[in-house]
Amino acid sequence: MSAVVKTVTPFTQRDLLLEALDELGVVYHEKGNAIMTERVDDYGAQRFIYEQGAYRFQHDSSPWRKLNFKEWKTVSAFLGAVEKAYHQAYERLQQRLAEEERRLLEEERKRFVEQQKQVVIQRAKKQGYNIKEIRKGNKIQLQLVRTTY
């Protein structure tokens, strides 16, 4: 007999898992290294326990046990929904990081241009120029004028 087994995505990021649970409207509270959900079975609240680098879902393993919990009766259905929401939260995080990276690069660019400008101005002043600065769109124009005798 052969079989194909697929595991749920390991929930390694606590913040993303909480964001996913929030997205799904799951009520939870944190207790130590566990995230206790409002899903309750014979052994109490079903929970995500942090171990070996990821949050794993602990629940009653009775196969016939189905809970009337929102739209996810089975553990499999619930974890499927959490996994999907987790992936979406991960994508949002990636977008935020990319945006932050862009913002930092833009700030660095502006600092560099400003530094160029200041160096030219300081040197021009030392060489006796009067300086007028004009903004033309994204460009800076420095008009240096010096009277010769």
Partner: peptide, 15 residues
């Protein structure tokens, strides 16, 4: 009196 003028343009990339 004669003037000496220099116009310096710095673009958004620093050129």
């Amino acid at each position: 009196m004669p003037e000496q003028r220099i116009t310096i343009t710095i673009d958004e990339k620093g050129q």
